[in-house]
């Protein structure tokens, strides 16, 4: 069963990379740009049949390694 995980910096944490990307796009003439936050994307394949237990496992993977909960938020989606 496959899942995608998106990890982003929390709202209050400065994201200098996102800011640079945003400024570059503005300099390139891009209009109506309100904000850009950069993050990470993982695709995880788990050997489970039951969706609930599969999601639980992915959540554990996030909490134990993929995400630094002090500064990052994450979202899990089934793909």
């Amino acid at each position: 069963m496959k899942f995608s995980v998106t990890v982003t910096l929390k709202k209050d944490v400065l994201d200098p990379q996102g800011k640079v990307v945003q400024n570059t796009l503005i300099n390139m003439g891009m209009k109506n740009l309100k904000g850009i936050r950069q993050g990470k994307h993982f695709e995880i394949d788990v050997d489970e049949i039951d969706q609930v237990s599969a999601e639980k496992k992915v959540d554990e993977i996030c909490k134990k390694l993929l995400v630094n909960l002090i500064i990052e938020d994450y979202k899990i989606n089934k793909i």
Partner: peptide, 16 residues
């Protein structure tokens, strides 16, 4: 900080 022995974290330098 990653092990939890010290709290807080080290972010990317402000000037990148």
């Amino acid at each position: 900080t990653e092990t939890g022995l010290l709290r807080g974290t080290l972010l990317r330098n402000k000037n990148l």
